[in-house]
Amino acid sequence: MKRLLGALLLLAAQASAEIPEAERRSGYHDMSPSVQAMQDDDMANPAMLWVLDGEKFWNQRQGAANESCADCHGEAARMAGVAARYPAFATDANAPVNLDQRINLCRTEQQKAPAFEYESRELLSLNALVSMQSREQQIAPPSDPRLLPFTQAGAEAFNRRQGQLNLSCAQCHEDNRGRKLAGATIPQAHPTGYPIYRLEWQSLGSLQRRLRNCLIGMRAEPYAYGAPEYVALELYLMKRAAGMPFEAPGVRP
């Protein structure tokens, strides 16, 4: 947090070379046709194994309240559009929360059950199930004024040089987008497909896990899962991708 504040002061004025709307493209388009085909076919996309679990968890009564997600929310299909507008401001937490945190708020506040661990099978599965309902919908960040300072902090973090390599996210994802880095095409960093089945992980993982990988790549200290810094970055990434079609659960190399 100290670092975030320090850098905010230093670089608050830096303007980013934002990608014009017409040039925005999902990381999907930087993948080889065979990996694209894996994402396109629900039977070849291993993420669907998590969605299957998500359906199970959705209907399980849990916690002291002995209620299931379905008891309050009905069919998972009713979650259409939700993932496309998260993170959002949660009144019950008085803070912006991403979808994982929203689900965990329902765990603790509604079901009266212990929160799921980040990247646990349960949380990823439920997130995948909820996210899948927003497929093909446009990313639509809420215009909630309470989110503004956080989205702004995310924008600043995105443009701030950090880590031992002294790189910013923008230097790779905007200035060098489409170029090659050790065999990988540098994508524009749009959060359109999360959670993703990443071939590297051989597993489903969250956007925060992806960001963590980039921070490690920059030789910067990754934040703890759920840290407000990640939520701020997520908010900004969603704003940057506003209008793009949601494609979760995606496949990425």
């Binding site: 880095l181 050790a182 065999g183 990988a184 990443r198 071939l199 590297e200 992980w201 990988n213 790549g217």
Partner: peptide
């Protein structure tokens, strides 16, 4: 086979 950049530890 190329490798993904910025892989996890």
């Amino acid at each position: 086979v190329t490798i993904a950049a910025c892989v996890e530890d």
